[in-house]
Design a protein around this nucleic acid. Structure first.
Lengths: 274, 274
DNA sequence: ACGGCAAAGTGGTATTACCTCATGATGGCG
DNA sequence: CGCCATCATGAGGTAATACCACTTTGCCGT
């Protein structure tokens, strides 16, 4: 009778909460009460079902939702776990958002600049010796892989993630991670186009950021990161020339879409979707 | 026979992709090909099931996952839709992350500062007349509700969201929205403690931010936002006194939870959960 | 012509049965 | 005696089916 139930003070059925949401709430309650912590395994699905009083497919739907949020992680045959390690946000949602609303490359660089310039500033004030060492390694790897764009890209991302982690702020780190992932996802397919000169400049830029952080110079780190991202954006703009900027619709493409919408649903657009 | 299928070029079964993920991929494909746009309704669950070739519970699990990511939104009896309006990220994931890792209030303010200072700077350069007008209204509402902390809080958040929106960068706006929601969720329960003086100062601070944006003064806007958030953080620290800072575990709280974990599963913690 | 009612369509849930995979125990073989 | 292979157990993964609940719409009666 291993008790991982919520015991007293039932969790059940806030009004207007369907069964699937109950599952999410239940797990949330377990987490908030400290019964579930990173690395722990959740009760089996069948057990959860009886505990909460819903069917197993419902439990599964709830767990899928949690998995999509990155809160849990299922391993076939083993169980459902809460990921340990540093806090991480799921990156898929942002990716979908990008596909739906057609984020431009410039918007991505802008977002990265805001986040990462701030992160670099914090890192310069707080990075631990180990974190500084990690940064040094990544910089070295960058210089070492200038003839392998794909490998270079990996270390590029790793460096930026390391900076975010060194900021000491898990929220900022999570956000950087999320946006970086979106960047990486796109960049991966175009990485080959980067010129040798660009890679060399990029490596140098990373080195300058590293040095500023190492010398505990927040303003220098911010400036270096800012310059680096602006430069990277400009380089990439040249690579693609006057070609594709937007990856998805946005408003252009498909001249007359509005009529098509009414064709296939009948339900007219609601303006207040919230 | 309204065709919302993917037609040629089947989407089916990338290796290592379970059925539920197929559902997500399928919807993603529909989106990326422009067959689904904000405001549209997805095919019925039963129809999706036959199209993809999986059972309905599986489809439901996939749709739940998408809903958790904020990509879709189901309305009982009506259908499943893609939300329209400005791009928005789900806020629950961050909330869970906060519960799991015990984000502190200072970390939240720090993250907000980084994001919103950047957003304010952008907004000062780009805000449309309508957006400026919205900001003005919210400032007015702030001054008007200084004796109703809960109402004040709502306009407070609205102002910050409006600034983020005025930044013209949907990615930044989404991120601000997400972090603000976390802030709001917590602040709501302690809003009553705010002193009249604090609210007045806060209203003034918002006015300064507004004025800087209106005068197209990016540096001024950044400075005003920075100062505002620092001040707000300090005020709130006073309110709670030397009391509770961390809301959740982090490492403290609950002396012996570990043994309970081994009781109920037998499987010892894996360190490399990733 | 208007308002209420009924039918169809759609998401929501429960049941049941089976499959696949991971894990640990167990027994045979070296 | 110890190592390795095999099997039993349990957990997640999926399918099929039957109903329920809500929403919407259009028809019918007033």
């Amino acid at each position: 009778m291993s008790n991982l139930e919520v015991d007293d003070e039932r969790v059940e059925a806030k009004p207007g909460e369907d069964s699937t949401e109950q599952v999410v709430s239940y797990v949330r309650a377990l987490i908030e009460r400290g019964r579930l912590r990173p690395g722990d395994r959740l009760p089996a699905e069948r057990e959860l079902a009886t505990q909460i009083g819903v069917s197993r497919p419902t439990v599964r739907a709830g767990l899928r939702a949690l998995a999509a949020m990155g809160v849990v992680q299922s391993r076939h045959g083993s169980g459902t776990y809460i990921p340990d390690g540093p806090p991480t946000l799921a990156t898929e949602p942002l990716s979908f958002l990008a596909a739906l609303h057609g984020f431009t490359r410039d918007e991505m660089y802008e977002a990265r600049r805001i986040l990462e310039v701030g992160a670099a500033g914090l890192a310069a004030g707080r990075a631990t010796p180990e974190q500084v060492a990690t940064l040094a390694e990544e910089v070295a790897s960058l210089f070492a892989s200038m003839n392998e764009p794909q490998v270079f890209l990996v270390h590029d991302i790793n460096f930026h993630r390391a900076v975010a982690l060194a900021s000491g702020n898990p929220i900022v780190a999570s956000l950087v991670e999320m946006v970086s992932a979106l960047y990486y996802e796109r960049r991966r397919v175009t990485a080959e186009r980067a010129s040798d000169r660009d890679l060399r400049d990029a490596a140098e830029a990373h080195r300058r950021i590293y040095q500023a952080i190492r010398s505990r110079d927040p303003e220098g780190a911010r400036a270096a990161m800012n310059e680096h991202l602006n430069q990277a954006r400009d380089y990439q703009a040249q690579e693609s020339g006057a070609a594709s900027d937007v990856v998805e619709p946005r408003a252009a493409a498909m001249p007359a879409v509005t009529p098509a919408a009414s064709e296939r649903g009948g339900s007219r657009r609601r303006s207040g979707a919230r």
